[in-house]
Design a protein around this nucleic acid. Structure first.
Lengths: 225, 225, 225, 225
DNA sequence: CATGAATGAGCGTTCATTCAT
DNA sequence: AATGAATGAACGCTCATTCAT
């Protein structure tokens, strides 16, 4: 059995099981038995379970990072005179995020994995992602800054994460939500459809009016605080 | 040791550890040793680890459910003539969500738990929450429907979940994000501050223009699909 | 099953297997299956394999240390006027070493274990023994120092270890040597017999003339160096 | 890579690691990765781990056996008329033992290995050594018998092993003992120095008076038995 | 009401060895 | 002659749970 075969089968199986159950709930025995490879093969090829988890992410994030850099290069060469509009930046990011797993028909898995990366207690994973792919995100946020000069830096930071939450939460919980939606609204939702719905929401959120300044104590009287 | 003491100490310890590490990564030994109670006490008082997880949620969701029903009762008696405005509904929900853990100074823990409930592979937990607290959410969404008659039902459904994602993602990952924000913007973010920032974003998102109809194939030429 | 039962059976089985095969070559499964206790019982009662190894030693060394201190107390109260003769010290040590395992008919095992403690790569074990029982050995060597004032300190140190080697090597390899002796000399050797033979050898070794001074270069011409 | 190169590097690395940690605690992966050869090379060149262990010993014992036979030949041709004195025999053995590893600066390693051969649970190793090198030891002990006609056979057997214990125990634990000695007596001990100290001790031990006969029951009243 | 002891199942990992190339 | 890949067995250990007291 060629290396690529075993390695690929482990990765293919692992990403599905990780996405379905999370990392701690997926044992190497689950993976190897479903992939029909030897239990020791994971440690042989990846070294440890942690390294396997990172490899699963790398298989998405390496091409993503590469393509996104390329796409931003193109944008920058096209908009030499002015700033790149926010909508174009968002559109480009969406297109790149979708392009990579689209080839393997695994957008849902990728999104679930992204969601897990944030929510599960895998400190090593967040560290790994930050180290390996931090620069491309930094580059993107800098372009967003230029596209939204009216937004205070802190406000932009939080809004980007608000939207990140929207996207990851929605797409990673897609199956459950889709079931409810189908039951209540007799509607079969596709990822394409969801992205269509997300677009105006994200744009509106980024363009929302600034909140009242904190010092005014305006909210002290409300029940929210 | 009175029962209530042991039970409370288990719950107090469990919710913190669950929030910090997730459910699978927190063992009963972690909990009982930190709570300085006997290992068997969890199974004795709660029956199983699953039941403990549900009990941890119930301690938040029972009072939340109760208060929210009461708050909606008040709103309905106040707005007998017209519909309750969307902003008021959102404000009321936010106030109720914040009120419960505020008494125990554990909003962050509660939000982390909510995030975990969605992201972790605890099917029993989602089922439990749906069964126990589904009706109050149903009541809320019906009021939102009346407040946003112009929104198609499906669109409203998705936008509510978009915003749910925003809130849960942000508040459950608060610590990590707060660290980044503090490092980059020299800003110490409080929950109160975050809610202030969330308000206009959520409102804008709910009022965003409808997406173009899917049938038009408008997006087919874009890179997103 | 009472605790003492399980714990004792684990210790009894472990010391025999350790003595027969060494520490690394004896698995917890070997021990627990032979002792007919659950595999997890070792970790439950001792915490780890390392701790089990130390517990096996403690069961011998704790009473030994105690008795030896008592015996030295008696000697010191008996010899208030002069020094305790070397032969008496050696005799006392021998008697104490033999007394402890004699009660459990396991001198051979104890000696094998002592030999292993020196020869096997269990750094934690040497550290543990040094920490727990170093003081009684220090006390003994100090008395030996007073009994042999003519010996340079370094020479005494080495001769004590030469003799330690003799005793441990002989008694820990007793079975193999006994087999050879039985085959060649038709002699069934008992521990008592071996101690009888060891006595004059040890005394003669401690009283051997000093080696020529190193500076003389006397040995440079010999083939030994 | 020429075969001899790979084989030599495996042997060089293996003997060091075996001496440091013992046989069971040294994995083939340890050896091959440190020697920078392929994992399968050990099984390819030696057949098994056991065979590797034996090969490590053979590299010392083959030349030792050869030289010792030659040295004894010389002694016998020199002492045609009377017996070879005990001191000369011991001196000759010491010189031969030291000569072989001296060429590779690895006396310590050799001694550690000898100690391990006795103490570790490698039955195959003792068998191998006995089969391969038993005759030269038999020849030596026969000469010792002629040199010490006054000693009963059994007594001579045990004293030789007492001394074997002294030497192997001391030299194989050299590093640890050297550390203690250096700390307590500010003395840097060399192997040459140790042999100097061993000489009078070994001679005195071999010449020690015979123990009282066992039948007398002399020791029954002592504490030793 | 509470607990120390015990259990069976399963975990990630490492092992010496084999085999096709 | 040599090696990368793969394997089955075993390792120490932790898990949630049960049970007798």
């Amino acid at each position: 059995m060629a290396q690529s075969d075993t390695v690929t089968r482990i990765l293919d199986t692992a990403e599905v099981l990780f996405a379905e159950r999370g990392f701690a709930e997926t044992s190497l025995r689950n993976i190897t038995s479903k992939a029909r490879v030897n239990l020791a093969a994971v440690n042989y090829h990846f070294g440890s379970k942690k390294a396997l988890i990172q490899a699963v992410f790398a298989r998405y994030l390496d091409p993503f990072s590469q393509r996104f850099h390329t796409a931003l290069d193109e944008l920058e060469s096209r908009y030499t005179e002015g700033v790149i509009p926010l909508e174009v930046l968002l559109e480009t990011m969406a297109a790149t995020v979708l392009a990579v797993p689209a080839e393997r028909n695994s957008l849902k898995v990728f999104m679930r994995l992204l969601g897990l990366a944030y929510s599960q207690a895998q400190g090593h994973l967040r560290r790994y992602i930050q180290e390996q792919y931090g620069d491309v995100f930094t580059r993107f946020t800098e372009l967003v800054r230029q596209a939204t000069p009216h937004l205070p830096d802190a406000e932009r930071f939080w809004r980007l994460h608000f939207m990140l939450g929207t996207v990851i939460f929605t797409l990673s919980g897609l199956d459950a939500l889709r079931d409810i939606a189908a039951k209540d609204y007799h509607e079969q939702v596709t990822v394409k459809d969801l992205v269509r719905r997300l677009r105006p929401v994200v744009v509106a959120a980024m363009h929302a009016p600034l909140p009242p300044a904190l010092e005014e104590g305006h909210y002290e009287n409300a029940h929210i605080s």
